[in-house]
Write a protein that binds this DNA or RNA. Structure first.
Lengths: 199, 199
DNA sequence: ACCTGAACACCGTTCAAGT
DNA sequence: ACCTGAACACCGTTCAAGT
């Protein structure tokens, strides 16, 4: 039986590079990520990656894009599984943020270090917008339920976003005591509920 | 008139390296920071920096340390100039965070990307503790004034810290619209006040 | 279209040797 | 004590040439 014909490599070098890059990121950190080593690992010449990523930053951007998409899926999934009240949805949201951060710490660092200029890639901008809208949707839903103060949803949501962003970032940086995590989660949830409460 | 005798170089290569490194960081970003270029700029051999920093990471750690120290000074100074009420002090605190972030964006990125293991340098750990205590002191003062809810100060302060941390991080990442900054500041201050309000 | 191989201009790190 | 110079083992990027 003959193996299926493949152009040169195993068919999708781009996807293979991204997959291997994420493994390296997870195992050895961003500093240890090199295009040449990636190419060696995949049995391809060191110049091959340039066909798929114009430079190293383009590969990092693509990884960050994957991170934003995965996070949004993770967040949306946890919202679907959550209860109906705002408090229950917020609980699920905070856990989604921190859970993702702890399970994807190097990737989150990369996502946080990306500069979101207006001239960033279209796909990245779209993914960041989806992330923003998904989290903001939580507040919109709370307003609809009458459990969150009225006002422009973006303005009510932004402080909450900052708190979630900060929680995830501090967790990844090692600034939070892991053994107090459950306590921190509960404190933050109660704090956000007060911050969003109706007047 | 004879120039004063200098050992080899201009006396304090370590300080000169840090100063030049911060300029480069500010002007061209962390990616453009190279020990060899630093050495060239200072007219010294490329191996000279290794006398003062055992490797590149040690120089980055030293820069982050400077960042934490400068931020704490900036924060403490702004608290001294602030009014007496908790709302006034919180206003000053939020502005100190965001102001520092916008004025030292590359340095803040570096500070955020530092991993705070227990085996980090003693000086860095001390600087981070000073940062933490300075911000937590704001909450302690609010409690003393009876304007902030009771309870263990660390637990009341942590959600506030996360919000401030997130505000600074999102500002530096370009996730906030600069023209809405004043509005965002006021919204966040009101949100934190509600989050900290007495029961 | 996709990849190779060689070339170029850089890196960080180490270490004997100099002052 | 502090720095130099050479050496080593890497990088990212480019480009003619191959299939």
């Amino acid at each position: 039986m003959q193996t299926r014909h493949r152009p040169y490599h195993h068919g999708d070098l781009r996807a293979a590079l991204l997959a291997r890059a994420e493994e390296t990121l997870r195992d050895k950190g961003q500093a240890a990520l090199s295009l040449r080593e990636l190419a060696r690992d995949l049995g391809v010449s060191h110049a091959a990656p340039s066909r798929h990523f114009k430079d190293k930053q383009a590969l990092l951007d693509a990884l960050a894009l994957i991170g934003f998409e995965r996070f949004t899926d993770h967040f949306a999934g946890s919202q679907e599984r959550a209860g109906e009240s705002f408090a229950q949805r917020l609980d699920a949201a905070v856990r989604a943020y921190v859970g993702f951060a702890l399970a994807n710490s190097a990737l989150l660092d990369l996502m946080y270090s990306i500069k979101h200029d207006p001239q960033a890639s279209e796909a990245l901008t779209a993914a960041v917008n989806r992330w923003y809208e998904e989290t903001t949707g939580l507040i919109a839903e709370g307003q609809r339920l009458g459990e969150v103060r009225e006002g422009p949803t973006d303005r009510v949501a932004l402080p909450v976003l900052m708190t979630l962003y900060g929680f995830a970032g501090m967790a990844v940086s090692g600034l939070l005591a892991p053994e107090a995590l459950e306590e921190q989660l509960n404190d933050v949830i109660a704090y956000i509920l007060r911050g969003c409460a109706r007047e």
